[in-house]
Amino acid sequence: MSILGKCPYCDANVVSKKITAQGKQIKLYSCENAKKEYDESESYVFTAEATCTFRVYSNAFMRWNKRSFSQYEMKKLLQDGQAIIRLHGRKGTNEYFKYVITDKTYGVSILWDEEVEEKKEDEVK
Protein backbone atom coordinates (compact mmCIF):
# COMPACT_ATOMS: atom_id res chain seq x y z
CA MET A 1 0.00 0.00 0.00
CA SER A 2 1.48 3.36 -0.96
CA ILE A 3 0.49 6.93 -0.10
CA LEU A 4 -0.32 9.01 -3.19
CA GLY A 5 -1.22 12.36 -1.64
CA LYS A 6 -3.79 14.15 0.47
CA CYS A 7 -7.55 13.63 0.17
CA PRO A 8 -9.22 16.59 -1.57
CA TYR A 9 -12.07 16.48 0.97
CA CYS A 10 -10.65 15.70 4.41
CA ASP A 11 -6.86 16.05 4.04
CA ALA A 12 -6.16 12.46 5.17
CA ASN A 13 -3.83 10.25 3.11
CA VAL A 14 -5.01 8.73 -0.17
CA VAL A 15 -3.57 5.25 -0.52
CA SER A 16 -3.32 2.76 -3.35
CA LYS A 17 -4.02 -0.93 -2.90
CA LYS A 18 -4.54 -3.85 -5.24
CA ILE A 19 -7.96 -5.49 -5.16
CA THR A 20 -9.82 -8.05 -7.23
CA ALA A 21 -13.06 -6.81 -8.81
CA GLN A 22 -15.11 -9.02 -11.12
CA GLY A 23 -12.19 -11.41 -11.38
CA LYS A 24 -9.68 -8.75 -12.47
CA GLN A 25 -6.79 -7.23 -10.53
CA ILE A 26 -7.22 -3.44 -10.32
CA LYS A 27 -6.01 -0.68 -8.05
CA LEU A 28 -8.23 1.16 -5.62
CA TYR A 29 -7.21 4.69 -4.68
CA SER A 30 -9.03 5.65 -1.51
CA CYS A 31 -8.94 8.05 1.40
CA GLU A 32 -7.87 6.30 4.59
CA ASN A 33 -11.14 7.57 6.13
CA ALA A 34 -13.31 5.99 3.39
CA LYS A 35 -13.48 2.45 4.74
CA LYS A 36 -16.02 0.00 3.36
CA GLU A 37 -17.18 -3.44 4.45
CA TYR A 38 -19.82 -6.02 3.57
CA ASP A 39 -22.97 -5.72 5.67
CA GLU A 40 -25.50 -8.44 6.59
CA SER A 41 -27.16 -8.21 3.17
CA GLU A 42 -23.76 -8.64 1.44
CA SER A 43 -23.84 -5.03 0.21
CA TYR A 44 -20.50 -3.21 0.14
CA VAL A 45 -21.12 -0.14 2.32
CA PHE A 46 -19.16 2.51 4.18
CA THR A 47 -18.37 1.51 7.76
CA ALA A 48 -19.83 3.37 10.73
CA GLU A 49 -16.38 4.88 11.33
CA ALA A 50 -15.98 6.14 7.73
CA THR A 51 -15.78 9.93 7.71
CA CYS A 52 -15.01 10.39 3.99
CA THR A 53 -16.20 8.88 0.70
CA PHE A 54 -13.27 9.56 -1.67
CA ARG A 55 -12.59 6.35 -3.64
CA VAL A 56 -11.47 5.87 -7.25
CA TYR A 57 -11.02 2.57 -9.06
CA SER A 58 -8.20 2.38 -11.62
CA ASN A 59 -10.65 1.06 -14.23
CA ALA A 60 -12.93 4.14 -13.90
CA PHE A 61 -12.42 5.10 -17.57
CA MET A 62 -12.78 1.65 -19.19
CA ARG A 63 -15.71 2.70 -21.34
CA TRP A 64 -13.49 5.28 -23.04
CA ASN A 65 -10.94 2.56 -23.79
CA LYS A 66 -8.52 3.63 -21.08
CA ARG A 67 -7.46 0.43 -19.35
CA SER A 68 -6.09 1.99 -16.20
CA PHE A 69 -6.01 5.31 -14.35
CA SER A 70 -2.41 5.13 -13.13
CA GLN A 71 -0.92 5.95 -9.75
CA TYR A 72 1.07 8.70 -11.50
CA GLU A 73 -2.17 10.23 -12.84
CA MET A 74 -3.82 9.98 -9.41
CA LYS A 75 -0.83 11.66 -7.74
CA LYS A 76 -1.01 14.47 -10.33
CA LEU A 77 -4.75 14.87 -9.72
CA LEU A 78 -4.29 15.10 -5.94
CA GLN A 79 -1.36 17.49 -6.29
CA ASP A 80 -2.75 19.84 -8.97
CA GLY A 81 -6.53 19.40 -8.64
CA GLN A 82 -6.64 18.05 -12.20
CA ALA A 83 -4.79 15.63 -14.45
CA ILE A 84 -4.64 15.07 -18.20
CA ILE A 85 -5.58 11.59 -19.41
CA ARG A 86 -5.39 9.94 -22.82
CA LEU A 87 -8.62 8.36 -24.05
CA HIS A 88 -9.28 6.36 -27.22
CA GLY A 89 -12.14 6.20 -29.72
CA ARG A 90 -14.33 3.11 -30.01
CA LYS A 91 -12.07 1.32 -32.46
CA GLY A 92 -9.05 2.23 -30.37
CA THR A 93 -7.42 4.02 -33.28
CA ASN A 94 -7.83 7.73 -32.59
CA GLU A 95 -6.76 9.16 -29.27
CA TYR A 96 -7.65 12.37 -27.51
CA PHE A 97 -6.79 14.08 -24.25
CA LYS A 98 -9.11 15.37 -21.54
CA TYR A 99 -8.80 16.89 -18.09
CA VAL A 100 -9.97 14.88 -15.10
CA ILE A 101 -11.02 16.45 -11.78
CA THR A 102 -12.19 15.04 -8.45
CA ASP A 103 -15.92 14.51 -8.07
CA LYS A 104 -17.80 14.08 -4.76
CA THR A 105 -20.24 11.56 -6.23
CA TYR A 106 -18.12 9.55 -8.66
CA GLY A 107 -14.57 10.04 -7.37
CA VAL A 108 -13.41 11.49 -10.70
CA SER A 109 -15.05 13.24 -13.65
CA ILE A 110 -13.91 14.04 -17.17
CA LEU A 111 -14.24 17.68 -18.23
CA TRP A 112 -15.78 17.04 -21.65
CA ASP A 113 -16.21 20.72 -22.55
CA GLU A 114 -12.62 21.73 -21.75
CA GLU A 115 -10.09 21.33 -24.53
CA VAL A 116 -6.59 20.31 -23.55
CA GLU A 117 -4.45 23.04 -25.10
CA GLU A 118 -1.23 21.15 -25.62
CA LYS A 119 -0.48 17.78 -24.20
CA LYS A 120 2.81 17.53 -22.41
CA GLU A 121 4.27 14.09 -22.87
CA ASP A 122 5.63 14.03 -19.32
CA GLU A 123 2.08 14.49 -18.00
CA VAL A 124 0.60 11.64 -20.00
CA LYS A 125 1.89 8.23 -19.05
Rank of each mutant, 00 (worst) to 15 (best):
E117D: 13
Q79N: 11
S70V: 04
K125E: 08
K91H: 00
C10N: 10
K98Q: 07
T102D: 09
E42F: 09
Y106H: 14
D80L: 05
L87E: 06
D11S: 09
E32I: 11
A48V: 14
D103A: 06
V56L: 03
S43Q: 15
F46H: 05
I84K: 10
E49V: 09
E118H: 12
W64M: 02
K104H: 01
I84T: 03
Q79L: 12
E117A: 06
Y106E: 13
Y38E: 03
F97D: 11
S43I: 15
I26Q: 06
E121A: 11
R90I: 09
L87A: 01
A50F: 03
F46L: 05
D11W: 06
K27R: 07
C31N: 11
R90C: 05
K36C: 10
D80V: 12
K75V: 11
G23E: 07
K91M: 12
F54A: 09
K76D: 11
R63D: 15
D103K: 05
K27H: 14
V124Q: 02
V124I: 11
G81D: 04
V56C: 07
V116H: 01
V15P: 00
Q25I: 10
E117Q: 10
A21M: 02
R63P: 03
K17V: 12
T93W: 00
E121N: 10
Q22E: 13
N13D: 10
T102F: 01
S16T: 07
D103P: 06
K104I: 02
I19P: 03
T53H: 10
K66Y: 04
N13R: 00
I85Q: 04
A60P: 09
S30W: 07
D122Q: 07
A48K: 14
S70N: 08
Q25S: 14
N33H: 08
M62Y: 10
I3T: 13
C52H: 01
E42A: 13
Q25E: 10
R90V: 13
